[in-house]
Design a protein around this nucleic acid. Structure first.
Lengths: 185, 185
DNA sequence: GTCTATAGAAGGATAGAC
DNA sequence: GTCTATCCTTCTATAGAC
């Protein structure tokens, strides 16, 4: 047999690409930059990801997996406490607020991608739109399961939209409003 | 003597550029595309706008002027009716909601630009950031003039952020919430 | 020898600027 | 129209591990 394949290669490339795409935008980052950051050759990159679109789709899927893990933990913790019916909805908003307050946060990767490519209908665009659709549906399902009125789902999602697209307002404002909303409703 | 200069030239270029930049994004539109849409020559474009950054800055300034005219009309109309203290704040949110509901709307030109160029500090970035800062300040001033609590300004701005960055939620949700907010406060 | 790796040149397209 | 630069992608050249 021949030289053994580097098992961490794909992972290293995707990690480097994720950091670069998220920090600087997909359009601004070229394949050469990813190659330099990953410390690999072009051959290896195009072996694992046959095109830039494939690499971007993998980047968005990785972000989705991380976001879902974080959101799942927050919801499970809120369900464990079970202090009130709407606590899970508040926890959902608070999780996004915590994410937005991170120093290296630069908004929502999916909304950002769709802003960069508004007319796109390729693989990454589908990943981004699927995430937004599924997440929005999860909010509605959670609201229904908690017996809250349907408009509460609209308002929770509105707060999440505002957090991700926020321009200066402290994220805590949204969390407080979510708590007030679920206590009144 | 030479050929007389086309007085409508700059206007025609800027109109074409505005439509293209707003619809497809600044990065996706090249100078050649603007030239083709404006039906002018390269020389004329670079005569009026010495660089793409200058053209983009002019595009953002034009959008700002249009937005301010529309917002000013909405606020004046609400002040004329004078049915309640918070009606002007509701009118502000409603004006953004109406803008967002337009068929050719693709969000906020300034937020979109800053998403496309997150690390930019050139002329268009300054125009975009100035608009957001000034508009945010106008909301706070309006809230103060109406004798509303400070947090009302935060929440109104949050609703505006959500409208511009909205992903599917009907804009009317934000308007209704703004009305409820100002009636309770 | 064969497979995988990196490095670099080159093609083909497109961008901004003159 | 042209010049230069960059981007994505492919291809060639070469070194190292089995």
């Amino acid at each position: 047999m021949a030289r053994t394949e580097d098992p961490a290669g794909r992972e290293r490339i995707l990690t480097a690409a994720t950091a670069l795409f998220y920090a600087n935008g997909v359009r601004a980052v070229g394949m050469a930059e990813v190659i330099a950051a990953a410390g690999c050759g072009k051959h290896m990159l195009y072996r694992h990801f046959p095109s830039k679109a494939a690499l971007v789709a993998a980047y968005l899927r990785r972000v989705r997996a991380e976001r879902e893990k974080s959101t799942g933990r927050a919801l499970a913790a809120a369900a464990g406490e079970a202090t009130g019916a709407g606590e899970q909805l508040v926890a959902l908003v608070a999780e996004v607020a915590a994410w937005v307050q991170r120093g290296d946060c630069r908004g929502c990767a999916f909304r950002t991608y769709l802003t960069e490519f508004p007319a796109g209908d390729d693989e990454p665009a589908m990943v981004a739109r699927d995430y937004l659709r599924d997440t929005r549906q999860q909010v509605d399902e959670l609201v229904a399961a908690l017996g809250e009125p349907k408009i509460t789902g609209d308002r929770i999602w509105l707060l999440i939209d505002a957090l991700y697209g926020g321009t200066g307002t402290p994220p805590q404002i949204a969390v407080d409003w979510a708590r007030e909303l679920t206590e009144v409703g």
